[in-house]
Nucleic acid binder design. Structure first.
Length: 845
RNA sequence: GGAUCUGUAGCUCAGUUGGUUAGAGCGCUUGAUUCACAUUCAAGAGGUCACAGGUUCGAGUCCUGUCAGAUCCACCA
């Protein structure tokens, strides 16, 4: 084995070994519970970012359960990523001076599909490089024909159950994308705009959008507003830019009498609130802005102008006509933008396909409330329920071309005996029903989230794993897509299968830079995980993303941290190097503990084995990883290996190494397997080895070794304080101490050791042993201050404990164990105190 | 406007149902070192757990309020 672990030399080879051995395919003991995770599908055209690297958590669970012998499946997939990919592809086209309108929708679809399929291997190879042990033979893509069939089937069932309808409603229209988007795909931004106060007959009213005035179909005031009581229900006549017009005045609760003049113009076609008012009062809908973001014929001479131009022009003309009361220039408000492309949203009334969510929401809420699904951390359950309780019907149609076509054909035959539209998966069905040339295909595609919400069951149905692995065990994903994805998977999963799609949702937070600042391209602080794995190794990155990062909370990632875990991997490597060197021609036997150290380390492994297993089962991966780290470094390397240099026990050493590798494997798969493969005795690969059982513990001997360790630590401390090198130790004979003498000599760096009746020099503080460091009086005198300091500390603690024990209600109400513990501690502290006092007196005399 | 989270050592963060003198990594200081590892070893300094009340024998942990930061939802014509 080389002196330092070099990840680059091993990782690719180890991954190939796993993959070729078929270890990623489900196996395990069929009598044990199945464990499955569906990987959140990354964009097939994308490249790896830290969000994907967080899938490490999934790999930890998968590797752990595989070793536990559960039939284990991690099913990977990639996403066509609807609008996101379409925007990227259109940018590519633009480079050649083309646009999507140079294609028919289906030609365009085929071109993007080819482009995507061509890129897909990038992201897959990147995921593999992180060591992810997913079953790639089952890889699914969201546009695979079998997935599309399942999505169609769901759509048909929803339609047949009356949960899908086609309707004309106000939507968030993106004029750039030429498509409608859901509320959740919209972000509001604060900005400052002019607020125009326009004269409307007897009223003055405030608006930021004078260009929509041609679509006004009412004037609204608050129903209890005394100023305007007399107008409610009446029609007013007003002068406008296109001549005189008449509008009805209505009373509606939505109007805030304290804002502006307490009067609003109602434009149902171009404002979500006005749309709602329109529904309540049965108002006419007049569309004055088209899907291209330009004014329509109804805007008269303004027709064809862009919204922004029309706004300026209308404002100017109103002023010129004396119809503008005044303008407030610095009005701060928030405006909707399309999250993906940054274009300002134009609320428009269009015809879309909707899912009636009320019947789907109820069981989805119940699943959380009755505990069928738990979210880690629990606090997100409330967030989940609140969101679903306020959910409005879901627009699932998108006017984009890159997506699953909505399988609907419209009647173009003029034959009214035939249905106006039909759901058909294939065009030939439409041809058969309507006749050649007598039908028109729907050009809209499904919202990406409509299909990806079916991902857990769709993938498992498509790979014939449904019966074995559904419901899945865990859905691990970013907390930012709780609404967008998780809630909808639950709704559609329950609807389609009658069962929850997963039992546990584990939400990870954002990964921030080393300063805890959000990564962003503009700040230039984006961390590319592949740079880090190249520098420090994949295991180091994985550990850095596991330890110190808790579910639902954001974590910081810096080079220091990753380098620390690179060092951990190297430590593990060198523990192995030492162990295997000592083992020589060793052939496996049952380890038999001999020394106190042997029994202590077995006890440590036993206890930590239980704790680590428990932590993994409870999704406390940070704690589990930390325990693995400390068990290797603080216990095995710093104490046991050092001890074993005095009292070697090769089988125990081997046992510790093997158990260590197993416990660490889910977290640091490459280095552990690389070491495992270096072991000369034959065995199966670590990835499929059994998770270790907790072995027998030796509490008594473990405590005894603990006393030795404490003594060694005390001596080290004195050595450091007094700058002593290899002093002589005097001790009062004691069998426990004598068995450990060579050990103490080595670990505490003692020169000579000799038994005495009554020693002199510096008494080493210890509850169990009586010993002195031989120190000349001048050196000892310099220690006076430190000694006094230590004495003061012990004195304070003793006082605190005494106070506690003098408190009657503490004695009465605190649990007995705790009180006993306090008493023991009191005795220990007082002993230490008397030793220190004695020492100080000796110095003074 | 509604809601959630966060505030613990110089930095980044842990801290399960309240119970040792509050922890880790990095950084800093001092020292060590042929014989697994300088990607090492030993030791140290450093915290009124944001602030103020309350509950309790006991609060970093529970409750109320205040301050500061972040996020989500809704949205004001």
């Amino acid at each position: 084995m080389e002196k330092a672990y070099d990840p680059a030399k091993h990782e690719a080879r180890i991954y190939k070994l796993w993959e070729d051995s078929g270890a990623f395919k489900p196996a395990g003991n069929p009598k044990k519970a199945a464990f499955s995770i569906i990987m959140p599908p990354p964009n097939a055209n994308g490249s790896l970012h830290t969000g994907h690297a967080m899938y490490t958590v999934e790999d930890i669970m998968i590797r752990y359960h595989r070793m536990q012998g559960n039939p284990t499946l991690w099913l990977p997939g990639t996403d066509h990523a609807g609008i996101e990919t379409q925007v990227v592809f259109e940018r590519e086209l633009a480079k050649d001076g083309k646009s999507r309108f140079d294609f028919t929708p289906s030609e365009f679809y085929d071109a993007v599909l080819a482009y995507t399929k061509n890129n897909q291997h990038n992201i897959i190879n990147q995921l593999k490089s992180l060591g992810f042990s997913a079953d790639w033979s089952r890889l699914k893509f969201t546009l695979d024909p079998d997935i599309i069939e399942i999505v169609y089937d769901t759509f048909r069932r929803l339609h047949d159950d009356g949960l899908v309808y086609r309707g004309n409603r106000i939507v968030n229209w993106c004029p750039r994308c030429n498509a409608a988007f859901a509320d959740i795909e919209i972000k509001h931004r604060e900005q400052i705009d002019p607020l125009y106060y326009i004269k409307y007959g007897p009223f003055v009213l405030a608006t930021v959008r004078p260009e929509t005035k041609f679509g006004d179909t009412a004037i609204a005031v608050h129903p209890k507003d005394e100023r305007y009581q007399k107008y409610i229900g009446k029609e007013i006549e007003a002068e406008g830019l296109l001549g005189k017009f008449k509008l009805k005045v209505i009373g509606d609760e939505h109007v805030n009498p304290d804002f502006g003049t307490g009067v609003i113009k109602v434009t149902p076609a171009h404002d979500p609130n006005d749309w709602e008012i329109g529904l309540r009062h049965n108002l006419e809908v007049k569309q004055v802005i088209g899907t291209d973001g330009r004014l329509t014929k109804l805007a008269g001479k303004y027709a064809g102008m862009s919204v922004a131009d029309a706004r300026d022009q209308v404002a100017k003309d109103l002023e010129a006509a004396g119809l503008m009361d005044h303008i407030e220039m610095d009005y701060r408000h928030s405006v909707a933008y399309h999250d993906r492309c940054g274009t300002q949203i134009e609320p428009l009334v269009t015809e879309q396909w909707w899912v009636k969510v009320a019947p789907l929401v109820k069981p989805a809420i119940a699943a959380i409330k009755n505990g069928d699904i738990t979210i880690v951390p629990r606090r997100f359950e409330k967030v989940y329920v609140d969101w679903l309780e306020n959910l409005r019907d879901w627009n699932i149609s998108r006017q984009i071309w890159w997506g699953i076509p909505i399988p609907v054909y419209y009647n173009a035959s003029g034959d009214t005996s035939k249905k106006p539209y039909m759901l058909f998966s294939h065009e030939n069905e439409a041809r058969e029903y309507y006749g050649d040339g007598n039908y028109e295909a729907e050009t809209d595609t499904f919202d990406t989230w409509f299909s990806s919400s079916q991902w857990p069951f769709a993938t498992l149905m498509a790979t014939d794993d449904f019966d074995r692995f559904y419901p899945t065990s865990v859905m691990e994903t970013g907390r930012d897509i709780l609404y967008l994805w998780v809630t909808r998977m639950v709704m559609l999963g329950l609807y389609r299968t009658g069962e929850i799609p997963f039992k546990t949702v584990y939400l990870h937070g954002l990964v921030n830079d080393a300063q805890g600042k959000k990564m962003s391209k503009s700040k230039g602080n984006v961390i590319n995980p592949l740079d880090k794995t190249a520098t420090y190794g994949t295991d180091a990155l994985r550990l850095a993303l596991t330890i110190g990062i808790t579910p639902g909370n954001d974590g910081a990632l810096g080079d220091n941290k990753i380098a620390g875990y690179r060092n951990f991997c190297n430590k593990l490597w060198n523990v192995a190097r030492y162990t295997l060197e000592k083992a020589g021609e060793y052939s496996p036997t049952t380890p038999e503990p001999q020394s106190l150290a042997d029994k202590w380390i077995l006890t440590r492994f036993s206890r930590e084995n239980v704790a680590i297993t428990k932590a993994i089962e409870a999704y406390r991966f940070s704690e589990a990883g930390e325990r693995v780290y400390s068990l290797l470094w603080n216990d095995l390397a710093d104490w046991y290996i050092e001890s074993s240099k005095i009292q070697p026990n090769i089988p125990i050493l081997i046992y510790c190494l093997e158990t260590m590798l197993k416990l660490a494997h889910p977290f640091a798969p490459f280095v552990t397997e690389a070491i495992w493969q270096n072991m000369p005795w034959p065995k199966q690969n670590l990835i499929v080895s059994d998770w270790p059982e907790a072995t027998k513990a030796y509490p008594k001997e473990s405590r005894q070794f603990g006393d030795i360790m404490a003594l060694v630590s005390q001596i080290r401390l004195l050595l450091a304080d007094l700058q002593l090198t290899r002093p002589t130790l005097h001790y009062v004979a004691n069998p426990d101490l004598e068995t450990a003498l060579p050990l103490i000599q080595q670990l505490a760096r003692i020169g000579k050791m000799s038994p005495v009746e009554q020693g002199s020099g510096l008494r080493v503080p210890s509850n169990r042993f009586t010993c002195w460091l031989v120190v000349d009086p001048e050196t000892l005198a310099t220690y006076r201050t430190a000694l006094q300091h230590r004495r003061d500390g012990a004195g304070e603690y003793s006082k605190k404990l005494a106070g506690q024990l003098a408190n009657q209600s503490y004695l009465k109400k605190a649990p007995g164990d705790l009180v006993r513990q306090t008493k023991d501690r009191m005795a220990e502290t007082d002993l230490l105190l008397s030793q220190l006092d004695e020492q100080i007196r000796a110095l003074e005399s």
